[in-house]
Amino acid sequence: MEKKSEKSKAPETVQEVDSRIAAVRDLIFGENIQQYNTEFADVYDRSKALQNQTQKNLGDSVTDLENKLADLESLMEHKFQDLNDDLDKRLADLDDEKADRRKLGKALEKIAQMLQE
C-alpha cells in the first residue's frame, strides 16, 4: 500500500517541479519568449497569407491553361475542317480531270474509227 501512495504523490511532485520550472523560465526568459511568440505568430500569418495567395495563383493559372487549351482545341478543329474541305475540293477537281480524260479518250476513239472508215 505504500507503493500506491508513493505513486499518487509522484505525479503531484512532478507537477510541482514543472510549475516551478515554468515559473523560473518565465522569470528568466519571459520577455524574450513573448517576443519570440509574437515573431512566430507574424511568420505564421505571413506563411498563411503566402499559401492562400499561391493557391489563388495556382487556381488562376489552371483556369487560364484550361481556357487556352479549349481555344487551341477549337482552332485545331477549325483547321482540320478546313483541311478536309480543301481535300474534298481537290478530290472533286481530280475526278473532273479524270472524267475529261475519259471524254477525250472516247473522242479520240471516235476520230480513229472515223479515220478507218
Rank of each mutant, 00 (worst) to 15 (best):
M1L: 07
M1I: 06
E2M: 04
E2Q: 07
K4E: 09
K7S: 07
A10F: 14
P11N: 07
E12R: 04
E16F: 05
D18I: 09
D18S: 10
R20D: 12
R20I: 09
I21P: 00
I21Q: 06
I21H: 08
A22D: 09
A23R: 08
V24W: 09
D26C: 08
D26Q: 15
I28T: 13
E31D: 15
I33L: 06
Q35T: 12
Y36Q: 06
Y36V: 06
T38H: 03
T38L: 04
E39F: 00
V43F: 00
V43S: 00
Y44A: 15
Y44L: 14
R46Q: 05
R46K: 06
R46M: 01
K48G: 00
L50C: 03
L50I: 00
Q51C: 01
Q51S: 05
Q55L: 08
Q55G: 05
K56Q: 13
K56L: 04
S61W: 01
S61A: 13
D64T: 12
K68S: 06
D71V: 03
L72F: 09
E73P: 01
E73C: 03
M76H: 12
H78R: 08
F80T: 14
F80W: 07
D88M: 02
K89A: 09
D93K: 07
D93W: 02
D96F: 07
D96M: 12
K98A: 11
K98G: 05
D100Y: 04
D100E: 15
R101S: 15
R101V: 14
R101D: 14
K103S: 06
K103A: 05
L108I: 10
K110S: 13
I111Y: 07
A112S: 09
Q113T: 10
Q113S: 09
M114H: 14
L115W: 11
Q116E: 13
E117L: 03
